[in-house]
Design a protein around this nucleic acid. Structure first.
Length: 434
RNA sequence: GGAAGGGUGUCCGAGCGGUUUAAGGAAACGGUCUUGAAAACCGUCGUGCCGGCAACGGUACCGUGGGUUCGAAUCCCACCCCUUCCGCCA
């Protein structure tokens, strides 16, 4: 959530900056400020009464309370209870509205109302040419027995899959490769230098396998439970299945104050992600592009306000480095105001060319979140001068299963085999083709 | 799942109805001393919210949420978590 002070001081700026689709930010800000005034008025009254109660109480502590004092105490108690009851719904509405208001995009974020208005900022590698008609990944998978969705449907329903055979080995190779790069400070340093990100720490990411579920309270604090219909809830438990390792890594240091010397804390988490994909009926029904369950390797980091923007750029640089090293054709997009998530002040996507589908498809995202998540999570840093302040969080995809699709489609051979990218061969027993 | 014990500030830890504006210790920061460091000594040292230009004042917070009371870290209820033992088990 945003700092209420910022909204009070610059409501028009918050509104102007937050052009989002789906709901009316201006209306929410207007109502929030009304509620804020009412709430503060009530709060002042309650606090005055409490002060009287505390005063009376300290008078009574030495001797036996007189009947008059007890009488006054009872009257105060009633007034306080009554005022508190009136305040409760205001506080609740205040909290709800505050959570609805999205983060303020940086000035550099392009203004747009749909994802069509995202701006391509870089392109890497030419689209490959084939002397045969390139197939979809599901056609290749069919030929090779790599994906079985029919039996998965029997077991779990639509949008689930059994991945099989060499496709599974390729996926595992991808995880290993990603973790190896992210834990190698020399390679990280090279990425920093190559991208002119001087001053960015080359500290290695710590590999993490997080819980795949989180409590309601925790999930809400991350700002990622906005669309409850997209997230699976465990029946009879106060638990939700995570839709990314980000959801269970970001709140890891909830209610903690971290020493500045420990920052940046960098994590690379592997988990299975679950998404209900409500409202996508009929979309991407073929193959494994859009499943209810998939695996993903994700970066998460905790830093300070001075370092977070470069940390974001660093994460994007890592993504580009990884994708380029695989030899995949992809482009980098600066997301427009409508396409960045509510907690974001900026966001970058990577779309990768899928020759079997003759289009670029989203494979990665990188979120610049500032202190928006840290505020409700109460994750803070004690600076070297002793001051505590909110940390800044960043997250970004390393690999999901979508790059797997890109590898299969881009490096396919005429007879339905796939050339293994060189950097993955050490993890595939040296095999050049599967 | 059963039994017992426990959750207090950055950390350790006391407190079990009104001297809590949370003892004491450690860490951290500032200072004295020292060639420098260590030690010793002195001082500072929680967070949120409300009001105020500020100094400051008020209020809330002792796992979470309710309750009892004029008054709750302290008593009662529910839940969550941790530890140990038993049972079950990848």
């Amino acid at each position: 959530m945003l700092d209420i002070q910022i909204i009070r001081d610059n409501p028009e700026k918050v509104i102007e900056k937050s052009r989002q689709k789906g709901y009316d930010v201006a209306e929410a800000v207007k109502r929030l400020l009304e509620v804020d005034v009412e709430r503060r008025g009530g709060l002042t009254q309650v606090e005055e009464l409490r002060a009287q109660r505390n005063e009376l109480s300290s008078q009574m502590k030495g001797s036996k309370p007189s009947p008059e004092q007890l009488e006054l105490g009872k009257a105060l108690k009633e007034s306080i209870t009554e005022l508190e009851e009136r305040l409760k719904p205001l506080e609740a509405e205040f909290e709800t509205l505050l959570k609805i208001i999205p983060n303020m995009p940086l000035d550099s974020v392009p203004v747009g109302l749909t994802e069509e208005e995202n701006v391509v900022i870089r392109s890497h590698a030419a689209q490959p040419t084939f002397d045969f008609e390139p197939r979809n990944h599901w056609e290749i998978a069919e030929m090779r027995g790599w994906i079985d969705k029919d039996r998965a449907a029997k077991i779990a329903g639509a949008r689930f899959a059994y991945l099989k055979g060499d496709l599974v080995r390729l996926e595992m190779a991808l995880w290993m490769y990603g973790v190896d790069v992210l834990t190698d400070e020399e390679q990280l340093q090279n990425i920093i230098i190559a991208n002119g990100l001087d001053g960015v720490s080359a500290k290695a990411f710590t590999p993490v396998i997080p819980p795949a579920v989180a409590r309601t309270e925790v999930f809400q604090a991350t700002g990622r439970l906005n669309k409850e219909d997209q997230t699976y809830k465990l029946e009879d438990e106060d638990l939700w299945l995570n839709a990314s390792a980000e959801h269970t890594m970001a709140p890891m240091y909830m209610n903690e104050i971290l020493p500045e010397a420990e920052l940046p804390i960098r994590l690379v988490g592997y988990t299975t992600a679950f998404r209900r994909e409500a409202g996508t009926y009929g979309k991407d029904t073929e193959g494994i592009f859009r499943l209810h369950q998939f695996n993903k390797l994700e970066m998460e980091s905790f830093g300070t306000k001075e370092t977070s923007l470069n940390e974001h750029l660093f994460m994007v640089a890592i993504q580009e480095y990884l994708m380029a090293s695989l030899g995949l054709p992809f482009r980098v997009l600066e997301k427009c105001t409508a396409d960045i998530g509510r907690p974001n002040a900026k966001g970058v996507d990577i779309d990768t060319w899928m020759p079997g589908q003759q289009q670029y498809r989203e494979t990665h995202t990188a979120d610049y979140i500032t202190d928006y998540q840290a505020r409700p999570m109460k994750t803070r840093v004690r600076r070297s001068d002793g001051v505590t302040e909110l940390v800044h969080t960043n997250d970004a995809t390393v690999f999901s299963e979508r790059p797997l699709i890109a590898i299969v489609e881009n490096f396919q051979t005429a007879d339905g085999h796939v050339v293994v990218p060189e950097v993955l061969r050490p993890y595939m027993g040296g095999r050049q083709q599967i």
